[in-house]
């Protein structure tokens, strides 16, 4: 059995699975980092992911086109994020309450449209999912090729997004404005940045990423829609945002760590290590909490987070 664990196929399989499992987490984490950097905590993430998973799945089921499914997932993520923006940015409701509301609303809606569309068949319908895309030449490299270059197209995109989001936040005009309003919305307003509009845009970008992250689960990771398909990955992304100190690189590293634990528990099961499955299933969540405990005391929360912004109506 020990030999199994250290075999080459086990390790390449593990690395490949790690990259796969971490894809949705990293996508969602990147989205949440952008939103929180702008000063909005979007707790709607879990529901938006579930809704993206459902709408993407159904769109593909209807048309047979996987990319159309991804597009619909992104679009529905944007719509839900705009609703969040209306509640939390325009009306200035508590971001906690509005976000949880979105999650509950979107989860209910996801179940509703799924049931409306497919009814309650004994065998849930499936789609033909994305297949891994082997990059010519690179995928032939022993070990590495198998692990890194036979992945879903979405996984490659996700990995490309990590530096892109970093550059966006730290090297572009919009990034500077977003970071400023997350720290001090008043400062952003006084230099002519429209705080609420920019926050809405950031929420929409985040929403699209959440939607796609959800659709990855039903169109690549699995080929069907289940109620618990997201299984708390949205919350994990929130945790990873904190863990990564609102930095895309560090946050993605956290996502990778979660993906690794997730992949490890699957792989260990498959080689027949007889620890109860549920103990394994628990590990990623527990480790996430432990990781949070480790970083929370020195976390530098964006100072404008959770604060709705209004020009003050009081003269002096």
């Amino acid at each position: 059995m020990m030999a199994d664990i250290f075999s080459a196929s086990f390790i390449t399989g593990l690395i490949g699975a790690t990259l796969r499992m971490s894809t949705p987490i990293i996508l969602a984490t990147l989205g949440e980092i952008i939103t929180e950097r702008a000063g909005v905590l979007n707790l709607g993430i879990e529901g938006i992911m579930l809704f993206g998973a459902a709408s993407g799945f159904l769109a593909t089921l209807a048309t047979g086109n996987l990319w159309f499914g991804i597009l619909m997932a992104a679009l529905s993520g944007v719509l839900l994020a705009l609703l969040m923006s209306f509640l939390a940015v325009n009306l200035g409701l508590s971001q906690h309450v509005a976000g949880l509301g979105i999650t509950i609303f979107a989860s209910g809606l996801a179940m509703f449209i799924y049931r409306k569309a497919v009814g309650s068949p004994v065998v849930p319908p499936t789609v033909h999912p994305f297949s891994p895309l082997a990059i010519p030449f690179l995928s032939d490299i022993p070990f590495i090729g198998e692990s890194f270059f036979k992945q879903y197209f979405l996984t490659y995109i996700t990995w490309a997004l990590i530096p892109l989001v970093s550059i966006f936040l730290f090297r572009t005009r919009f990034g500077l404005r977003i970071r400023t309003m997350g720290q001090n919305p008043f400062a952003a307003d006084t230099v002519g940045v429209n705080v609420n509009r920019t926050r809405t845009i950031c929420l929409a970008i985040g929403g699209a990423l959440f939607g796609v992250a959800g659709a990855f689960l039903t169109l690549a990771h699995q080929n069907m829609f289940l109620i618990d398909v997201v299984g708390g990955r949205g919350w994990i992304a929130i945790a990873m945002t904190i863990f990564g100190n609102w930095n895309p690189l560090m946050g993605s590293l956290g996502g990778l760590m979660f993906g690794f634990l997730d992949a490890l528990q699957l792989r260990l099961q498959s080689v027949g290590i007889h620890l109860p499955i549920h103990v394994f299933l628990m590990i990623p969540y527990l480790m996430t909490i432990v990781a949070l405990v480790g970083v929370s005391r020195k976390a530098t929360v964006p100072a404008g987070l959770l604060k709705p912004y209004r020009r003050e109506e009081k003269g002096g």
């Binding site: 707790l43 906690h96 299984g231 708390g232 919350w235 994990i236 929130i238 945790a239 904190i242 549920h278 103990v279 299933l281 628990m282 969540y285 527990l286 996430t288 909490i289 949070l292 405990v293 929370s296 005391r297 976390a299």
Partner: peptide
């Protein structure tokens, strides 16, 4: 330890399920 309560209470749901 100043750990965000939203995240921990949520994650503990999943832990308890398992």
């Amino acid at each position: 330890l100043k750990v965000d309560d939203v995240v921990t209470t949520l994650l503990l749901n999943y832990v308890m399920i398992h």
